[in-house]
């Protein structure tokens, strides 16, 4: 029972990561709108920083899998 509650909390943390990632996308879109010629550079930086933010979600996933199967 307790591990299911813990998994639910892990999913809440994943939602927070989603908010963070959307902030990254929002700022990138704003800067593309302000300076469309820089779109190429902004896009590559956006994808890299998205990957970095996403890694937090992946850590949560690893913890969740460990909780679900190992404990």
């Amino acid at each position: 029972m307790e591990q299911y509650i813990a998994l639910g909390i892990a999913c809440v943390a994943m939602g927070l990561v989603g908010i963070g990632e959307s902030l990254v996308a929002m700022k990138a879109m704003e800067s593309i709108g302000r300076n469309p010629t820089a779109a190429k550079d902004v896009r590559s930086t956006l994808i890299i920083s998205m990957g970095l933010v996403e890694s937090i979600a992946i850590y949560i996933l690893v913890v969740a899998i460990l909780m679900a199967f190992a404990i």
């Binding site: 992946i58 996933l61 690893v62 899998i65």
Partner: peptide, 16 residues
């Protein structure tokens, strides 16, 4: 640790 878990978690998540 961060590099390992990033790659491992991504591959595992895709597989799952």
């Amino acid at each position: 640790l961060s590099l390992t878990l990033r790659l491992f978690g991504n591959a595992l998540a895709g597989f799952c």
